[in-house]
Design a binder for these strands. Sequence first.
DNA 1: CCATATCACGACTCTGATGTCCTGTTATGC
DNA 2: GCATAACAGGACATCAGAGTCGTGATATGG
Lengths: 151, 151
Amino acid sequence: MIISRTSQYAIQALIYLATQPGGRPVLSRDIAHNLGVSPPYMAKVLQGLCRGQLLDSTRGRRGGFVLRSGAEHANLLEVVLLTDGPRVDRECLLGLKACQDETACPMHLNWKVVKKDIHACLGGITLRHLAKAVQSGQYRLADLPQGLASH
Amino acid sequence: MIISRTSQYAIQALIYLATQPGGRPVLSRDIAHNLGVSPPYMAKVLQGLCRGQLLDSTRGRRGGFVLRSGAEHANLLEVVLLTDGPRVDRECLLGLKACQDETACPMHLNWKVVKKDIHACLGGITLRHLAKAVQSGQYRLADLPQGLASH
DNA sequence: CCATATCACGACTCTGATGTCCTGTTATGC
DNA sequence: GCATAACAGGACATCAGAGTCGTGATATGG
């Protein structure tokens, strides 16, 4: 896994919110349900996104979560850096703690190229792009619920 | 982490063995010591590599591990597939279980390109290449032992 | 101002990967 | 053959990430 489960849920939730009409908050439990994630865990992930300034939350009746204005232009790298920290960028393929250009593992140069590709891939795509893709109907944000063929 | 710790240790051990003069077996504990890995865990990793046909082991006095003949031409993808299974290839960035071309997540096409790059990177480099690199003295196979500055 | 609906947050549990240990098997050399 | 040196392999321990729960805070609507 290149990114943590928490990051995956975070990205899914953000895309989902980006597909919703702005203005009215969406319930944590509705997001969880739509994505097939356990409600308590989704709640925790959403809290993290609020702390990271990507979401706004309102409590009480008619409360819930909305994308902050401007957050739809955040790219995936920003989201992953927020939830997983700088791991994605730094990590050495062989696990060396000190794998820099001067003190490199034998895969360093090759792996550096791949990391750049990953960086570009994540950094070049915004929540808005992904929301549009989902809205086109050609892509899925979550696995289908099981039991589809069961009746 | 794109590959497991076990895979990282496996690759390190294989490269290390590829740098050793063939013929005489190398002790599990010597490999562990040279790479800064705990001896029992390294022993377990080496056993896996024997089962996977990459190493030969001999027991008893003057026993230890040697690279099987031909194994130096194994590439990193083969090693990772052996120790981690097909995870690296398949995995969806967003964690969907069924993310194929027809039932794709919105990152599928972009991520497919990155996976191809990773595949090429791992598949294009053999243990021999890496052993040569280490033998050149320009690269490290393990972190320096701590306490270097302590006396 | 009270009941209710919702998020906030810390504490707890669970699980799989990592790491350790012990006993058994096999080879060597005297 | 017996003592010793090494791997084999399963059982056990530890830890971090994933997931759950309960209590508190806050907003709404009557």
